[in-house]
Design a protein around this nucleic acid. Structure first.
Ligand code: FES
Ligand code: FES
Lengths: 136, 136
DNA sequence: GACAAATGACACTAATATGGTATCATTATA
DNA sequence: TATAATGATACCATATTAGTGTCATTTGTC
C-alpha cells in the first residue's frame, strides 16, 4: 500500500515549486511544463488547494497560484488530509455492525497508536524543510 | 486513509481466534459463527493464509485451519503484506516516466523513512501479544 | 472594447482496488 | 458411500484513484 496517493504527491511538488519560484507565484502552464504533470489533473488539485486555503489564486492574464501561508506552516499531513482524509481507524465489523468490543480491543488500540505515530511524523515535515535541498 | 484493509483485519482476527482456541484449530463454519464475518470472503482469506504459510489446512470431515507457525512469529506486517503488499514508496512521475531525481529527492527520502518507521511498528505487534488480552 | 490568458465550476470517463459471492472439484472421515 | 470439510477459481458490485474536457468568468493589455 502507498502512504501518499498521486494527487497528494503532485500537490506537494507543486507547492514546493511555487514556494521556491522567484515570483512566489506560478501558473498551471508553467507548472505543467516544469513538473510534467497532467494539466487538467493538476488544475483540479490546485483549485482544491485554493479552496482549502493553502494556495491563493489570481485569475486573468498574469494570474496563477501563490502560497496563502508560509512554507513553514504547511506540513505533509495537511496536504494528505485534503486529498486522502488523513489517517483513520478502520471499523471492525461483527455481523455488519460495528464491533461492541471496539473500546477494549487490543488490535484496534495498537493500530490507533501506530497511526498516531505516523501522523506525527507526517506533521514534522514542512514544505520549508523540503525546499531546503535542491530537489523536491 | 486506512492503514489496514478489511481482509487484513479479518485475517488477524481469525488468526487470533485460532491461536486462542483450545483445539488450536477451527473450521470456517466455527469462525463464521463466532466472528460474524462473511463466510465466502473468510474462506478466501484463510485459503490465502494457508498458501502463504501462516496457516495449515486439513481437508475432509473434522478439518479446518490451524497455525503453521508460533503466534510469536506472526506479526501484523506479515499479514498486511499478504493482503496489501506492504508499505511501498509511490513513484514520482515526470512526463509519465519515473522521475530521474528519485534518488536525491528529499520528499521521497522523508516518506521512505516514515514508511520504514511505520513498518517497524507493525512488526512489533505479534499475534501472541494480541491474544494476551481477552479481546482481539 | 476586443482579445488573450488565466482560473472557476463541474461533469464525465477509465482503470484499478476493495469487498464480497457462488460453484464445482477434491479430500478425509465415520 | 454419505457427509463435512477445504481447494480452485470465476464472477460481481461498489468505491477509489487518476485523469480529461468543456464552458463560464475574470483580468490585463493593445
Ligand atoms: S474492535 Fe471488534 S474485535 Fe477489535
Ligand atoms: S522523486 Fe521526482 S521529485 Fe521527488
Amino acid at each position: 500500500m502507498k502512504l501518499l496517493t498521486r494527487d497528494t504527491d503532485y500537490a506537494v511538488r507543486a507547492i514546493c515549486f511555487i514556494a521556491r519560484s522567484k515570483e512566489k507565484k506560478a501558473s498551471v502552464a508553467e507548472l505543467t511544463f516544469r513538473l510534467g504533470m497532467p494539466r487538467s489533473f493538476l488544475r483540479k488539485i490546485l483549485q482544491r488547494l485554493n479552496e482549502e486555503g493553502l494556495l491563493e489564486s489570481s485569475k486573468g492574464k498574469g494570474g496563477g497560484f501563490e502560497l496563502a501561508i508560509k512554507p513553514e506552516a504547511i506540513v505533509l499531513l495537511d496536504v494528505m488530509r485534503i486529498f486522502q482524509g488523513g489517517l483513520n481507524l478502520n471499523n471492525c465489523f461483527l455481523k455488519k455492525r460495528i464491533c461492541p468490543e471496539k473500546n477494549v480491543c487490543r488490535l484496534r488500540r495498537e493500530i490507533g497508536l501506530i497511526e498516531k505515530g505516523t501522523a506525527a511524523a507526517l506533521s514534522k515535515i514542512s514544505i520549508a524543510s523540503l525546499i531546503k535541498s535542491r530537489h523536491n
